[in-house]
Design a binder for these strands. Sequence first.
DNA 1: GGTTTGATGTCGATT
DNA 2: AATCGACGTCAAACC
Lengths: 226, 226
Amino acid sequence: MADALAGGDLLTVFGRCAVDYEGRASSTLGPGDRHVTAKPDGTVLVHTDEGQQPVNWQPPGCSQRVERDADDDALRLVSTRANPDEELVVAFESVRQVSAFAVDDGESLSLTGSEADLRQRILESPGLVEPGFQPLVTERRTAAGAVDIFGEDADGNVVVVELKRKRVGPDAVGQLSRYVDALERDLHADATVRGILVAPSVTERARRMLAERGLEFSAVEPPGED
Amino acid sequence: MADALAGGDLLTVFGRCAVDYEGRASSTLGPGDRHVTAKPDGTVLVHTDEGQQPVNWQPPGCSQRVERDADDDALRLVSTRANPDEELVVAFESVRQVSAFAVDDGESLSLTGSEADLRQRILESPGLVEPGFQPLVTERRTAAGAVDIFGEDADGNVVVVELKRKRVGPDAVGQLSRYVDALERDLHADATVRGILVAPSVTERARRMLAERGLEFSAVEPPGED
DNA sequence: GGTTTGATGTCGATT
DNA sequence: AATCGACGTCAAACC
């Protein structure tokens, strides 16, 4: 088992265990049946029978080792990392299955429908934002961070576009607002800066917040399957 | 295997497979060795040998079924859900291991060091924010959302406190800023509203943004292990 | 290594 | 069912 850990295999253990974590936060989990995965990149995942997220975990890059208790011969998986200093201990009281798999996987995921795809769509058809909109730069830096699309409208006004791939809430309004404020500062007071939130839809509270700040919304869907 | 899916077991399959997903976004993944988990609550996880996150997944509540191809006898795991309409298909070309586990887990995770723990600490020792601070309400509603702690300072000014358990960036400043703006509206212009961001530390950009908006920062650590 | 932001984020609470 | 904000968020891009 220690060989598998050292040899680049993906290791899985199913059994009854208790889990302790100490690091950015602290947690304890009493005994129960769980599925534990230790990946060759240092990742550790502890899964119960419910939920998409692991109940405990350790990120890639961690050091992992298997210990066997001198007294009761019980199995323990210990994973540690520095910066931040964190430790995860999975203490098994019984083990039902241990497996080691050699993994051959050369393929990587191809995904469409992301914000990057929406940006591409806007750059190809700027009129989707509004007639006459002209993109000038993407990722333009401001004192408040990088603007998704920086451009100008049909009248030559500066336009800041913030993109979201799905329905937006107050957080996106805050983001757009920060960028508009920062640009008005950067460009002094000589230019009108319009802020347009581009997303499939907007929540009611976000719509009110946009109105209060003089910001706008334009409905555009991210590209679907092609 | 279909029995295990129906019977409340946790099912795992390791083998060479291709994965297709279509829903909020779309993805394809060519053939490779992966570890697939199907939980009795409807969760599906597809893990490669790298990374903490699954390369593909389906959330709890999905309907899952196992199909065997009439022609080549190949195994397929199909998971679907409505609202949003999503489908995940894992098509195996070879299987190295199939396991089904009955899971007995009555314990739940106990975690300390969360934002809720930080709030508790502040309510017990309000002076940590600043001398004379008096909490009045938690989760006070405003037009922009609920404020973490609403209170007043030694001079009777209204104080809005936004809590974060770790170092904060621009997003937290935007959040606090929205709450202060909303409260100044709600309470008309007759009161001074102070906004204080309470967290272990702040990034440089966030510090500048606080200063620009007349907001404040107070360094408080979340409670560690007890 | 720190900072900033996107994500098929997920998850829980509340309306 | 929709909304909102926390999360040991994770992960990537940029500096």
